[in-house]
Design a protein around this nucleic acid. Sequence first.
DNA 1: CGATTGGTTAAGCATACCCTTAAGTATCAC
DNA 2: GTGATACTTAAGGGTATGCTTAACCAATCG
Lengths: 115, 115
Amino acid sequence: MLNQSADLDRMFHALADPARRAMVERLSRGPAPVSDLARPLPMSLPAAMQHLGVLEAAGLVRSEKVGRVRTCTLDTSSLSRAERWINERRIEWEHRLDRLGEYLKSLESEGDRDD
Amino acid sequence: MLNQSADLDRMFHALADPARRAMVERLSRGPAPVSDLARPLPMSLPAAMQHLGVLEAAGLVRSEKVGRVRTCTLDTSSLSRAERWINERRIEWEHRLDRLGEYLKSLESEGDRDD
DNA sequence: CGATTGGTTAAGCATACCCTTAAGTATCAC
DNA sequence: GTGATACTTAAGGGTATGCTTAACCAATCG
């Protein structure tokens, strides 16, 4: 759990590029070799490889080479961590709104009694 | 809904920085003026302002100036969109694993009959 | 009023990011 | 072995990012 902030840095950064998100989308439908991931992208193969490197460094993708083909798979556990971070902030915000609502309601009741 | 990819670019990019996430965390507990957001950060005020600009451009934060103080609030709707994108990919992946499990199970049953 | 507080703009700079082309390695097909 | 396939590495370049300091409003305070 050491320095999970840097982990989140890498994960969100990895997701902040359309080419890398396209790769993640493709991989969410199942494992794929590098060339399959690169083919739809409007860039050279080395460029696609670099994106893949970013995804792997972020822990979003794992890959294994067999023969001359490297097969990539999605690692959803790290995806979950990014999701959880966002969710926790959103929930915190909603709780706060709830508490605010309760408070306003209590003021209203006070007003009923006072008035 | 035009060009929502660029929206996701901006959102994930905005979240990919610890200073900006710290601001979001602070704002999830309620609105705050610029100086409150900047104070805990290890950087100059103009630097913090630039981060705030990134968060606003991403639609994650709204702000309004009254007198000489600008009050910032979290906009969770855009936060939800980032969350949803991640969730959809993760769910797709899990469905695929489920289907794969079903398939393997059916093979097993075939095996039982064949054996 | 003049000083302070809270924010903003401008300019500059080091580094990181994303892409390219060129060249190299390792497998597989014949 | 020769050629094609599937990556991989290396080098370089344009642009974006993240920070700095200095200077500049505009509300408030005394």
